[in-house]
Design a protein around this nucleic acid. Structure first.
Lengths: 203, 203
DNA sequence: ACCGAAAATTGAGGATAGCTCGCATTATGG
DNA sequence: CCATAATGCGAGCTATCCTCAATTTTCGGT
């Protein structure tokens, strides 16, 4: 159960919730999930521990709320950037290069939060579901472009989803520990090259 | 700290450690990591809680030991299967198809343990490192074959690593929730097709 | 066979962290 | 202005991880 226990109705309580989430984000990022106690979060937020549990049923729900927020903004910004890039009807290799760079940007912009959610957090079914939904949204946007270009093989939706999943994993790996002797740019270039070839098959 | 606290020297203690790990595996898989208490593990193993902490410094170390065991056997069996498949010097598309099926087998053979390690366990730096090492071993084996076939672009090691990371993520996704209207076999076919094209570029 | 040392086992309990619950305080709206 | 709802509070309950001093078992040398 990670759903909010009670929705704040007054301005005062909305500020309380915001303060709690802000404090949770800071402490989780600085000390990790398990090392952060809910009492410390409440203390830093300037509220009592009772208030915290008024709005969040358990510690995990704090993480779920942060994850949802991050996934929503990240997905939205990525889809927006992708849509802007697609406006000019670029060729496949440009589209793929842009996509990889947008995904890479997610890892460099808020690296601490990103790594918190992907490397430290216990992966609850709810978190996994949210993540899958984000993947599918991005894949849908990519699939549209593949269809427009007449590529992506007989099943562009499937190809798009596999591309999103693959690019995510590859860039995460490159950001975590890039192969010796290769820069991040090398990795991005290789990833873009691979996927341009992989997706080039006519529909 | 997940390193063993003390290495068992007598037969008796080796059996104790084995019983603890067996109990931990069962309970973790049945009830999840956090819901399993160390006292329950000791109880099911038929030893006292003190004995458990004689050999494992903390709860996390139990998971790390299970993870190391699973990763080692999985990596070894995958590399062995891959080597056997490569003996007959097959073409690229056969090699890629075999690789995807071997990886898929890891997800179907011991699904509970696999999902435990990938979806529930808190990802400690040590676990992440072990996982990276396994990836690199498999990638090295694949890179050899790419070189033999004269494919994989200018940097076959990089291509191989990206392929291993990508295939792992895609098959994990397909096993977790396959796209609507597609069977697992559809997914495997699509994955193999994509990577055959991606890796086909001459060196 | 015997003995001292090392290895192994034990389980009550300390320390700590997640979470509850009854009460106090503040806001709302009629 | 007051009844009601919303919000805030924090001591303390409960459960879990882990320690430690005492006990039992095994081993190696004589």
């Amino acid at each position: 159960m990670t759903a909010p226990r009670k929705t704040p109705r007054q301005q005062r309580s909305r500020e309380t919730v915001a303060a709690i989430l802000e404090a949770a984000a800071q402490l989780f990022q600085r000390h990790g999930y398990t090392a952060t106690t809910t009492n410390k979060i409440a203390e830093r937020a300037g509220v009592s521990i009772g208030s915290l549990y008024q709005y969040f049923p358990n510690k995990e729900a704090l993480l779920a709320a942060l994850a949802q927020e991050h996934l929503e903004t990240a997905t939205a910004s990525l889809i927006q950037a992708f849509a802007r890039a697609a406006e000019q009807h670029p060729p496949l290799h440009t589209l793929v290069r842009d996509l990889t760079q947008f995904v890479a940007a997610l890892h460099t912009e808020r690296p601490a939060l990103h790594r918190l959610l992907f490397d430290q957090a216990p992966r609850t079914p709810e978190l996994v579901t949210r993540f899958r939904e984000a993947e599918q949204q991005i894949a849908a946007a990519l699939a549209d472009e593949l269809r427009r270009l007449g590529v992506g093989g007989p099943d562009p939706e499937m190809s798009a989803l596999l591309a999103v999943q693959g690019v995510e994993a590859q860039i995460h790996g490159a950001a975590l520990d890039p192969p010796p002797g290769r820069t991040m740019a090398d990795c991005l270039g290789a990833i873009a090259g691979l996927w341009t070839r992989a997706l080039a098959e006519p529909g």
